[in-house]
Amino acid sequence: METASKEHQLIVSVSPHVKSEETTSRIMWSVTASLLPAAVMGAYFFGPRAVITLALCIITAALSEYAYQRALNRKVSVSDGSAILTGLLLGMNLPASVPFYIPIIGSFVAVVITKQLFGGLGYNVFNPALIGRAFLLISFPKLMTIWTKPEAAFLKMDAVTTATPLGILKEEGVAKLMEVFGDKINLYTQLFVGHRAGSIGETSAIALLVGAAFLLYRGYISWHIPVSFLGTSAVIAWIFGGKGALFAGDPIVHLISGGMLLGAFFMATDYVTCPSVKKGQLLFGAGCGFLTMLIRLKGGYPEGVMFAILIMNCFAPLIDRGFRTKVFGARKEARK
């Protein structure tokens, strides 16, 4: 009888017996895909060097994860896409002009030191790509701050160096920025499209927003961190960003220059290193915004997104603790 013959093959497992289709690797690959528009714009503006830098980052990330896990006899998890995403994010955070050993060192630091040595996916305290970048910035400060002019010339290997909009703003002020870009409309347009000096993947606001819209639509990120991050930055930029007077700053320039959009939508929202409770995420994002603007307006660097997110990463576990969810029906218990 068929029933009897089946019996010894029954699968026994614990409930629930149905699972959603969402998987960690699908999330990682989707986030990777959402970064592609901005990466492509970076390749378009900064040429073959940018493509090589991105490729070196991704390949090193994947290889070092593979080598580390093989060496320690662990399950190799390169196919979950998380190392590749880290590599891509790091590459997008580098200037296109760096020598080719820079992406290799950075990727190794990101994947092996920041992620694997802390226990692998899920256990790292800091955003791996950002630690990779911070390591490079501190170790190679000169190389990491040479910015090339976006040329939109795909086959050009050499490039003209220039300053980033935030660099100009910091060193020479808003008047100089206007002089470089002509008028305000042109400034906004160039920043929006991404025709400006900067890290490979951070310049094109429109491409980043397209990717971000995809992530929000699919529910891979929620609005909490980006909105509080950008909102706080905008308010601070508006109040304190002007020369001489309060309430004279230009929040739009701050939002669409530097790594603000890349950071707010794609780096601060990293599941592992941000708080998991939504209310806590609002505080986390606000902290990122505050620290970014503090560094941009008062600190030694023109850009502060990276350090802001890394500092807030430290607080993520504490924030989760402080914003513990309330159990259903808790109110009555509190009254006791």
Partner: peptide, 27 residues
Amino acid sequence: EGVVHAEDFGPCIRCGRCIDICPMGLM
């Protein structure tokens, strides 16, 4: 299909999905 075998689960990536949907407001 849909049966997850013991060795196939991964570490918590702290995505917070379970916190968002827990009907009892747990973590």
